[in-house]
Amino acid sequence: MADQWTAKLDIYLDGELPASEMQSLDAHVRSCPSCAADVLNRLQLKRTLQSAGKRYQARPEFRKRIQKQIATRPQTSAVRLWIASAAALAVLLVGGLFLAHLGELRLARQRTFSQVADLHVATLASPNPVDVVSSDRHTVKPWFEGKIPFTFNLPELQNSEFTLVGGRMAYLRHSPGAHLIFQVRKHRISVLIFQDRDMKGLSSDSGAQTELSFNCESWSHGGLRYFVISDASPDDIRQLVELLKAAARK
């Protein structure tokens, strides 16, 4: 008669019987010595199994290892931080290199303008500032043929204040070019023309600037680099620059 209950004794002891059945079984166990003994035995096995089952203990070092492993999130962010730092460092490095490069370019540009100023000063100081003395552009321009590896156009100056004094060979950054002397009133103006590829670091159009108190301008056009330098006023320089640019476009 207890058979109907026996199958349910374990579920009863597991506390998983529905409430109604639990009550009935409870009542039965109290009145049935055989089932009560069975419950006791099963309970004993259950308890022994519970303690016997807690048999293995992990090594403390292993626990630490797992704890460290779990704390990998901060480590991950450490890795991220490291990557971010590396990226920042790379940016700084590249930025630094770029700035250094800019610095080099600026230095090169300054050196070039200094050389241009030197050429201008040296030429004016020379007893023979020009090798070809002519106000005729059709005389001066052919004079350079075979002396420099390029040619250039000179402006028509008839209706302007400028006159062409003459020309000579010049070297800038070891590159050969044309050095032309113009005059406006009492001021002499140097116009230097070189191949632009030899003049790296210079902007395509420098605008008006000063070098050793000389007013100068530089620009590139058609593969040629032009420098205009003089103690004449910036306005005079500008006018000559416009004339030269117009001539170059022809």
Binding site: D3, T6, A7, D10, S34, D38, N41, R42, Q44, L45
Partner: peptide
Amino acid sequence: PARSDTPE
């Protein structure tokens, strides 16, 4: 069915 002659 669980047997009643248990070794518990």
